[in-house]
Amino acid sequence: MSQKEFVKPVDLENPYRLFNLGGTVFLEVKEGDDIDVMPASWACPADYTKMSVVVDSTHYSRKILNKAEYFLLTVPGYGIRKELLYLGSVSKNGNPNKIQDSGLKFFNIEGCDFPLPEGCAAWALIKRIPEAHMEKSYDMFVGEIVKAWADSRVFSDNHWHLEKGPEELRSLHYVAGGHFYEIGKSVEVTL
């Protein structure tokens, strides 16, 4: 069974919840046929519908992002941890075949011009809001989520339930040098 069968649109009332886990994300950018995917640990909701991501000026993705109208952020899962590490260790500046060499697979979904990476728990198409000062001074890009999807086995009704889905879709949290934490169990706290 293909993962695409489980991918469902996410209500745009609270799309920030897709990224509120604080894990490592994939940033995907494209210009024509030129696509790059890189992990980013410094990405977070800026409000209920906006996201921020920090991308250093030396990254190949940055030269595309500087001109992009849209970018894609995704929540990669434990099942693609090797692809995630490879894509963060190899630059397209030095290896134009970086994505193919990583082994990352993609699928297409109606209404999105970006190919979606397989093995992710969520995907969001984001319209960039140009902020020249922040981009130049802080390497920070901001955009508004215009479309979003999630794997219904781990996200539905605007809530995560990662502990009930396949382990390979649990988010990863980067520490350093190939060291990650996989998100753990759910804990309910009441007053």
Rank of each mutant, 00 (worst) to 15 (best):
Pro115Trp: 14
Val10Asp: 10
Pro115Ser: 05
Asp34Glu: 15
Asn158Ser: 11
Val146Lys: 02
Leu87Ile: 07
Val10Trp: 09
Arg81Cys: 03
Tyr48Thr: 05
Gly79Cys: 01
Glu69Pro: 00
Gln3Asp: 08
Gly94Arg: 15
Ala150Trp: 03
Phe106Trp: 09
Gly177Ile: 14
Asn158Pro: 00
Asp36Tyr: 10
Leu18Ala: 05
Glu28Pro: 00
Lys67Glu: 04
Gly77Lys: 01
Met134Tyr: 11
His179Gln: 12
Val154Ser: 05
Arg128Tyr: 04
Glu135Ser: 04
Val29Arg: 03
Ala46Trp: 11
Glu28His: 08
His179Tyr: 14
Phe114Met: 01
Val146Pro: 00
Tyr181Pro: 00
Gly165Ile: 06
Pro117Thr: 13
Gly22Trp: 06
Ala150Asp: 01
Cys112Asn: 08
Glu110Arg: 10
Glu118His: 01
Glu5Thr: 14
Val90Ile: 11
Gln100Met: 13
Glu135Leu: 02
Gly178Lys: 03
His161Ala: 04
Asn93Glu: 13
Glu144Lys: 08
Ala132Cys: 10
Pro9Asp: 13
Asp157Gly: 06
Ala176Gln: 13
Ile183Leu: 11
Pro130Val: 02
Lys30Gly: 11
Lys98Trp: 06
Asp113Val: 10
Asn14Phe: 15
Ile109Phe: 15
Glu31Ala: 07
Arg170Tyr: 03
Ala43Glu: 01
Met1Ala: 13
Leu72Trp: 11
Leu65Tyr: 05
Gly184Asp: 10
Ser57His: 15
Tyr174His: 06
Met140Trp: 12
Gln3Thr: 09
Ser2Leu: 10
Lys8Gln: 12
Tyr174Met: 06
Asp139Met: 05
Cys112Ile: 15
Trp160Pro: 00
Ser171Val: 06
Gly111His: 12
Lys63Asp: 14
Phe26Trp: 03
Ser89Ala: 12
Leu21His: 01
Lys105Trp: 07
Ser57Ile: 12
Tyr60Gly: 02
Cys112Pro: 05
Val25His: 10
Trp149Lys: 01
Ile80Arg: 09
Phe107Glu: 01
Lys92Pro: 00
Glu188Val: 06
Tyr48Arg: 05
Ser186Gly: 09
Asp47Pro: 00
Leu169Val: 04
Lys127His: 08
Tyr70Gly: 01
Glu188His: 15
Ser52Lys: 10
Tyr86Asn: 05
Leu162His: 06
Leu125His: 07
Tyr78His: 14
Lys50Arg: 12
Gly32Tyr: 13
Asp101Ala: 13
Gly88Asn: 09
Val75Arg: 10
Leu87Ala: 04
Cys120Trp: 01
Asn158Thr: 08
Val7Gln: 05
Glu13Thr: 12
Gly184Glu: 10
Ala176Trp: 14
Ile129Val: 14
Gly178Ser: 03
Ala43Lys: 05
Val75His: 02
Leu27Tyr: 13
Gly103Trp: 10
Leu27Ser: 07
Asp139Lys: 11
Pro117Val: 09
Asn108Glu: 14
Arg81Met: 08
Leu104Cys: 04
Pro45Phe: 15
Ser89Leu: 15
Tyr181Leu: 14
Ser156Tyr: 09
Ser89Cys: 00
